[in-house]
Computed example of a mutant assay.
Amino acid sequence: MNTMAITRLPAQGRQLFPGIMACGVVAAASTFLSQHYGAPVMLFALLVGLAMNFLSGDGVCAPGIGFTARELLRVGVALLGLRITAAQVVALGWQPVVIVIVAVVVTITVSMVVARLLGFQSLFGLLTGGATAICGASAALALSAALPAHPQKERATLFTVIGVSALSTFAMISYPMLAHWLGLDHHATGVFLGGTIHDVAQVVGSGYGISRETGDVATLVKLMRVAMLLPVIVFAAMLTRARTGPGAARPPLLPWFAVAFALLVLVNSTGWVPKGLQDFGSDVSRWCLVAAIAGIGMKTQLKDLATVGLKPILLMVGEAVFLVVLVLGMQHFG
């Protein structure tokens, strides 16, 4: 887009354009680095975004960076609905569905309780527990969008995304070895990997690295966890409304992006959505989420992350271990 084209944009568009482009450049660079070095793209987006946080000051990029971190995040979450169909959930059978529902509910509940015991707000436990139990960085971003504004919210979100990305990378490498050591068959291994590894891409990579059957089962179980994002977002919105002070504007019970997510799941379940459109929507969702986390990184100061302390790290590691033990226990006794 040349200078003349930019000047013809509406005033708000011209104001947002530099920051959105900056986030887009970081997203493209992060995708390139992820494809060549194998690390999670969200982690690269965070690190590169943090390195460019000088752009989020009072310069021309600040409005667009804020828009990307806030609004494009919601668009990306809504488009996650194109990954899921009702038929995929039914194809799992009842046992994996029960395992997923119980694992998500119990992990989040325990995380909220432990967070309070450690001196944090229970909403921080909801954020970290939801990221661990549902779908990693995508869930952290979605839940952050539904939670009330707070001076520490962006810092907590950034810490959660960094932590869950690191844990997911470790899980992708170590969990298949754990499943082999435990003697799980291909189907059971698929349920275990899909029920515990945080990020969708890493579930796919670890599952199909073992066998086609394991990969198919792991992917379906993981998509079921992604589907749990909607009720958890509704729960987060209910908590936000309940904690809104008297006289303040109450947020909607169902954020628009949660409604859009549900509608896209329903439409996708009809079979009317072509495969090409599903893939396109999934790609747009990924780009929006990567750009949004780049924007959050740009808005965060490194010195803020350096003060998080040991307790949040122990909380997230404990959540990951708890989820592994819970899923393996339900598989064994189910």
Rank of each mutant, 00 (worst) to 15 (best):
T128P: 02
A146C: 13
A145Y: 07
R155C: 01
L147G: 07
T160R: 12
A156Q: 15
Q152L: 14
V113M: 13
V114D: 07
A146R: 10
I134P: 02
L143F: 05
M112S: 06
I108R: 13
H150Y: 05
A142L: 01
V114F: 09
G130C: 08
L126V: 00
A133M: 06
S138N: 13
V110D: 04
A156R: 14
G119L: 08
S138M: 08
T157K: 02
G130P: 03
H150I: 04
A137Y: 10
V110S: 01
A139I: 03
T128M: 13
A146V: 02
T132Y: 01
H150Q: 07
S144I: 00
T107A: 00
Q152S: 14
A131C: 02
F159H: 13
H150V: 00
L118T: 05
V106C: 00
L127N: 05
S122R: 15
R155H: 09
V110M: 01
V105L: 13
K153I: 00
A137C: 08
A139V: 02
A149T: 08
T107Q: 07
A131L: 02
G119Y: 12
G119I: 11
S138Q: 11
E154K: 15
R116F: 11
Q152C: 10
V104N: 05
T157H: 13
S138R: 08
V106Y: 04
G130E: 02
G130Q: 04
F120T: 07
C135S: 09
T157W: 09
Q121D: 14
L158D: 03
A140E: 03
K153N: 04
P151G: 06
R155S: 03
T107C: 01
T157Q: 09
A139G: 10
G130W: 03
F120I: 08
T160E: 02
F124T: 05
R155V: 11
G136M: 10
A142I: 00
A156W: 15
L117D: 08
S144K: 14
F120E: 08
T107V: 00
A115K: 11
L118M: 15
A140I: 01
L127R: 11
S122T: 06
L126T: 08
F124C: 04
Q121A: 14
V114W: 03
G130N: 06
T160D: 06
G129D: 02
V104P: 02
A137I: 07
T107R: 07
A142M: 04
A145L: 04
T109N: 07
C135L: 04
A131Y: 09
Q152R: 15
T160V: 10
T109H: 11
V105P: 10
G119Q: 09
A156V: 00
A142T: 09
L126S: 06
T109Y: 06
H150E: 00
T132F: 03
T128F: 09
L141G: 01
A156Y: 15
A156D: 10
P148Q: 07
P151S: 10
A156C: 04
A146F: 06
S122F: 13
